[in-house]
């Protein structure tokens, strides 16, 4: 199938950057260790902060490090290729191919995510497991739920990155928007601080925004905070954002196509 072929090519392409992968795993591990000690100090003060115990907190840190590249938290991934093709005008050629751009880049990004999960995801996790006391999924439901949630997290992140890249149709360059979107993602995904620690209305807001799907939702499923109907609701939250954001991607792409094809760029 075409989409499988696209995903495999992307996987293979990323796998050629070996040195970068190893350096990345190292960096993720170092940050994992630093964050772990910081969180341990925090939970030493307040052992039930946000409803997490210290083991939950440290597990959360390593999940965050593992997910960071898999979901391409800072932006980038295969959508950078799209932004580049928009900038150079090559995208006009893509538009006349018998395959949609959203599906094309999504397949490609899933291939990339699979590679980053197997390397930058599992690599640091092994280090974390060896050095710290980390919680494993509560049971098969949590494990399966996490796997599904992880894929959904990649898709949510993809849609936002696709929208960011599409800004290049109007701005010529995505980098300004990308930096801004990356800042939002770091803050509202719970990468810096778990969203469970966000107070009052800020917590409510953060938990309703799409970025919550990036780390908070999959981590809570892993930690067994969502079970039964609650777990389905958590996955439903991610699906909701995918539907909304994919709709936006298609709408933006339609407008962009109009701009290129009707107005002439």
């Amino acid at each position: 199938m075409l989409y499988v072929a696209i995903a495999t090519r992307a996987f293979r392409r990323y796998s050629t950057y070996r040195a970068a992968t190893i350096a990345g795993i190292f960096t993720n591990s170092v940050f994992g260790v630093i964050y772990s000690y910081a969180y341990l100090a925090l939970w030493d003060e307040n052992p039930t902060a946000g409803g997490y115990d210290a083991t939950d907190a440290v597990t959360y840190v390593w999940l965050g490090q593992a997910l960071l590249m898999t979901i391409a938290l800072w932006g980038g991934g295969t959508t950078d290729d799209l932004a580049e093709r928009i900038r150079t005008g090559d995208v006009a050629i893509d538009l006349y191919r018998p395959v949609g751009l959203v599906g094309w880049y999504l397949a490609s990004d899933l291939g990339r995510a699979a590679y980053h999960f197997l390397t930058r995801g599992i690599g640091p996790t092994v280090i974390g497991l060896v050095v710290f006391d980390i919680r494993l999924p509560a049971g098969p439901a949590a494990a399966a739920g996490f796997a599904v949630s992880l894929v959904l997290a990649v898709v949510v992140s993809f849609t936002i990155r696709f929208l960011v890249a599409s800004s290049a149709f109007w701005l010529l360059d995505q980098s300004g928007v990308k930096v801004m979107s990356g800042a939002f993602a770091i803050f509202f995904s719970g990468m810096m601080l778990p969203l469970v620690l966000f107070p009052g209305w800020l917590g409510t807001l953060a938990n309703a925004l799409p970025w919550a799907s990036y780390i908070q939702v999959p981590a809570d499923i892993w930690l067994g905070k969502h079970t039964g109907g609650d777990l389905l609701a958590a996955l439903g939250f991610q699906v909701f954002w995918i539907v909304v954001l994919l709709g936006c991607c298609h709408a933006v792409l339609r407008a962009a196509t109009r701009k290129v094809v009707v107005q002439g760029g």
């Binding site: 075409l2 150079t88 050629i93």
Partner: peptide
């Protein structure tokens, strides 16, 4: 301009086109 994929071997671009068309 190019229709080929920058980071892929030539052969891979051709194979993707085969699937696409």
């Amino acid at each position: 301009r190019t229709t080929l994929w920058w980071d892929l071997p030539l052969r891979d671009s051709f194979e993707l086109l085969q699937k696409m068309y």
